[in-house]
Amino acid sequence: MSGVLPPEPDRGATEEDGGDLRVLPLDDDEAARLINCLAADTARSTLTALQNDPATASELADGVGTSLQNVRHHLDNLREAGLVRVVDTRYSVKGREMKVYAPTRDSLVVCVGDSADVD
């Protein structure tokens, strides 16, 4: 699976710009939340769509081919798992505020083993 980790580590990445390396043991609650979140095809499609350009929930719903409510549900889960963040705000033609989402820039590794083994 290409694109999971960057080909070369970004030596200039800092916590502020979201360039951290997250290492999660498989038995960790955060890893479980992440795996459960990515188990859904729509969540993976939504995250993949965001790799190209930041987008609003309605743009993602159109691009992924599902309902706005379904995309919002998966975006909430992706945010809780630390995979997606809000990067901007746009306004609809009706003047409604819409969040613009983008993937986080963290590299993520889930390790099999005891959480005491990961430091």
Rank of each mutant, 00 (worst) to 15 (best):
D76V: 05
R11F: 15
A102I: 00
A57C: 07
D29G: 06
S58V: 10
V86P: 11
L5T: 01
D117V: 01
V112L: 11
P9C: 02
G12K: 15
G19D: 02
G95Q: 05
D114L: 03
D119F: 14
V109Y: 10
R72D: 14
L75W: 05
V23H: 10
L78M: 09
E30C: 02
M1F: 00
K99L: 04
S58L: 10
R79E: 12
L75V: 05
L108H: 08
V4I: 03
G82S: 12
Q51C: 08
V84Q: 13
N52R: 14
V93P: 09
D29T: 03
A13Q: 07
D88Q: 04
L50G: 06
N77D: 13
K94M: 11
G12H: 13
A61E: 11
D41P: 12
Y91F: 12
D62H: 05
V100T: 06
R85K: 15
L50H: 02
V4L: 04
V84K: 15
N36K: 09
Y91H: 15
R105Y: 02
L34Y: 09
V23C: 09
A40N: 07
R22D: 03
E97C: 09
Q51H: 12
P6C: 00
L60R: 04
R33V: 07
R72E: 15
V118Y: 00
R22G: 03
V93D: 14
V87K: 10
A81W: 09
S92P: 08
D29H: 01
E15N: 08
V84A: 12
A43F: 06
L68T: 07
Y91S: 08
G63E: 09
R44T: 01
V86Q: 14
V71I: 10
A55V: 04
D106R: 15
E59Q: 11
D53F: 09
E8S: 06
L108N: 03
A61F: 14
D41H: 12
V93N: 13
R105S: 03
A55W: 05
S45G: 13
D106P: 00
G113H: 04
R79M: 12
V118I: 06
D17Q: 01
S67H: 12
E30H: 13
L24N: 05
P9G: 11
N36F: 05
E59P: 01
T48K: 13
A32P: 00
L75C: 07
S67A: 15
T104V: 05
D27F: 09
D53L: 10
Q69G: 11
G113T: 04
M98I: 02
G82W: 14
R22C: 06
S115M: 05
V100G: 08
C111Q: 14
N36I: 00
P103K: 13
H74A: 07
S107K: 13
A49R: 12
N36V: 00
T48I: 06
L108D: 01
L75M: 01
N77A: 13
Y101M: 00
L38A: 01
M98F: 08
A49Q: 07
V112W: 11
L26R: 15
H74R: 09
N52H: 11
T56L: 09
G12E: 13
E80Q: 14
A102Q: 05
A57H: 03
